[in-house]
Amino acid sequence: MGALLTAKGLTLAYGGRRVLDGVDLALARGETLALLGPNGAGKTSLMRLVAGRLPPDAGTVHVEGRVPHADRAARAATGWVPQEIALYPRLSVAENLGVFASLAGVPRRSRAAAVAAAMVLTDIEPIARRLVGQLSGGYQRRVNIAASLMNRPRLVLLDEPTQGVDLTARAAIHAVLRRLRSEGAAILIATHDFGEAERLADRVAFMAQGRIVREGVLTDLLVSLRAGAPEREVILSGAADGQAEATLRRLGFAPHEAGLVWRTAERGSGLDGAALLGTLRAQGVPASEVRVRAPGLESLYLDALRPRQVTGIPSARAAGAAR
């Protein structure tokens, strides 16, 4: 099937600082693409351009062949779910959705049906009469998603849709996104949650300093990565002193999670888990556990971004050639 969303050479600057630098992107119907990258990488700015909230300084973006910032039909085909909760806390869930249906241009005679359909899709019918301000964060985020669905958009953009919610709410939101995908919607999701991206995405794109530095089918990228040695992770029982840190770094580990977890920067130390644990303890490292596992999306992310920290920002093709 042809691409529902296409972006070519997108460039954008704020206050003289370039936040997007030649971004190319395509997304088909029924496909989910996860954007991953550090804060300031350009993920939200890219979504704003796709949603038609502002035009690019250079390049083009099309949704169903239309230019979003200049064409209302393109904007109507796109549901935009911002990171912030954009709801009226003193109105009920149903009243909120009615307001957003009106703002989306849904004819008055069709609004009740649009509200009802969005509530069914997001599984919030039981709370239709409750005030939004009295809901949990997870329910508010589901209502936030429902508010973007008044025109049954073919493209849905979500910026950190599960930020700050518990595991139960996260699972409910993921179920909503799977329903949208099964109905043929294209989904573009920006997230810092690697587990979320692995569960939901067909493809992933890693962003750094305004560019997509690597992109591909998630399963293909993981198969390639897992063809090598397994990943090793050392759990410390306490903070490592200078000598312990030097030992860990010499064996190829780097700190993670406040320094109590160290992971291999380059996989494969030549020792199995038990031997590595013994070696570390013998050299004064307060290691309580060594985990050996197949590398996942976080390893892909770190590998994709690592060259930019050392050599600037080569293209994804150049970075791949360098490997």
Rank of each mutant, 00 (worst) to 15 (best):
A77Q: 04
L297W: 01
G268Y: 06
G210L: 05
R267I: 13
A175P: 03
L27F: 04
A274G: 12
L167S: 08
P255K: 01
S45N: 10
R130V: 11
D202V: 07
Q283H: 13
H62S: 11
L12A: 01
V115W: 03
G105A: 07
R249N: 04
P82Q: 12
R203V: 13
S148V: 10
G228L: 13
Y88D: 09
V310G: 03
V106P: 07
R211A: 08
R250Q: 06
T60E: 13
V50M: 10
P161V: 01
A227T: 09
L271D: 08
S288G: 15
A113K: 05
A171S: 04
P56I: 05
L158I: 01
R178S: 03
N96T: 08
F206N: 05
L54Y: 03
A240Q: 00
V223L: 12
L222G: 02
L20Y: 07
E183S: 10
G2D: 15
A319F: 06
I124K: 05
A185R: 09
A86R: 09
P153S: 14
I85F: 01
S148H: 09
M150I: 06
L20P: 11
P230H: 04
D57L: 02
A318H: 00
L155N: 07
T311D: 14
L276T: 01
E215R: 06
A34Y: 05
M1C: 09
A229K: 12
A186N: 03
R179V: 15
E31G: 01
R249D: 10
S92Y: 13
Y139C: 08
V165L: 00
G30C: 12
L236D: 11
R111H: 02
G228T: 13
G105P: 00
A76K: 09
A70N: 06
V50H: 09
M119S: 06
I189D: 00
A227Q: 10
L297S: 02
R250M: 01
G79I: 14
L54V: 05
A318Q: 12
Y301W: 04
P307F: 15
Q134H: 13
R178K: 07
V61Y: 13
R130H: 14
Q283N: 10
R199S: 01
L36A: 06
M1L: 11
A86K: 02
G138N: 05
R17E: 12
V176Q: 04
G30N: 06
F253E: 10
